[in-house]
């Protein structure tokens, strides 16, 4: 129900037949105003977010990362990520590290049949072995960063979560829905709170909680449009427990790519995507 349809109800005010106090009208308008803010549900927000995210599933991104440890030391990495959308919810992702030299050609492959059904593999050139990453590890650190496998692996299955809009807020000059997301399945976090930019439908900020404790928080900035797709070119994820944080920068982003299927194979992983 939209605000306008509510206000489209005609009110008959007749001093002769019935006296309706002015204050009640004001109250009614106010009530309608409040309820109309949550015209969208939390789930709907995330459905919108998913629609945008789906558009990004065909992409190539060059990413640089800096890992900060609690002592202030830094480690720099760069990688390239290829992604291809499949039928329905299916998609594939190939990530290959470029730098530092010790990590050259270390890779990561995702085959998702649906958002909830994913296989992950990792490849380490020194061992010349493909390793399956168990599904339950998706909350664990993505290769030593403060992002989890899920953060990079693609959008989550909405049916595994419940959503609640807490409020609306302006962040970095952008109006946002502040949504509380609670998993229905066992995850490392008990809930997270995200700031989803309205009209852009991307995360600008996200806070992960374990019970009442905020343990991980991320910010996504420098949002630019690439092929009409809003993209945060900078991100920072900090782990409050360890004092560690990871910063990423997108150096180059291409959407609507059309990579062949054989790029997203274990063989390709072994060949380092060449």
């Amino acid at each position: 129900m939209s605000r306008f349809s509510i206000l489209g109800c005609r009110l008959r005010i007749s001093d002769e037949r019935r006296h309706i106090p002015t204050w009640s009208v004001v109250l009614l308008i106010l009530l309608l105003s409040v309820t109309s803010v949550h015209a969208m549900s939390g789930r709907e927000v995330y459905e919108k977010l998913h629609e945008v995210a789906k558009k990004t599933l065909d992409h190539k991104m060059d990413v640089s990362m800096t890992l900060f440890d609690k002592g202030g030391g830094t480690r720099n990495r760069s990688l390239v990520a290829y992604a291809k959308r499949g039928d329905g919810e299916a998609y594939k992702v190939l990530v290959l590290f470029n730098t530092p030299p010790d990590l050259k050609d270390v890779g990561f492959l995702v085959h998702a049949r649906t958002f909830a059904d994913r296989d992950l593999w990792a490849y380490f050139p020194e061992f010349k072995k493909i390793r399956r990453i168990p599904t339950s590890s998706q909350d664990d650190s993505f290769f030593g960063t403060d992002f989890s496998y899920d953060d990079f692996g693609g959008p989550a299955n909405l049916d595994d979560y419940s959503f609640k809009i807490l409020k609306e807020e302006v962040l970095d000059g952008k109006p946002c829905f502040v949504v509380e997301v609670t998993p229905k399945i066992h995850r490392k976090f008990t809930r997270y709170v995200s700031w989803v930019a309205k009209d852009l439908w991307i995360h600008l900020k996200i806070e992960y909680y374990q019970e009442k404790e905020l343990y991980r928080e991320g910010e996504f900035t420098e949002v630019r449009m690439v092929d009409d797709i809003p993209t945060a070119f900078k991100g920072l994820m900090a782990n409050r427990k360890t004092g560690h944080k990871t910063e990423f920068t997108l150096e180059d982003v291409q959407y609507h790519t059309s990579f062949p299927d054989d790029l997203f194979t274990q063989r390709s992983l072994e060949r380092a995507g060449k």
């Binding site: 010790d102 990590l103 270390v106 380490f124 590890s137 290769f143 782990n239 427990k241």
Partner: peptide, 25 residues
């Protein structure tokens, strides 16, 4: 870590670069 009480990705382990740990023999 599903069987034994520790994890290299756990915050309690002091492993600055788990990726490098895995990548190098």
């Amino acid at each position: 870590h599903k069987i034994r009480d520790y994890s290299i990705t756990d915050e309690t382990a002091d492993i600055p670069d788990p990726l490098l740990f895995l990548a190098k023999a």
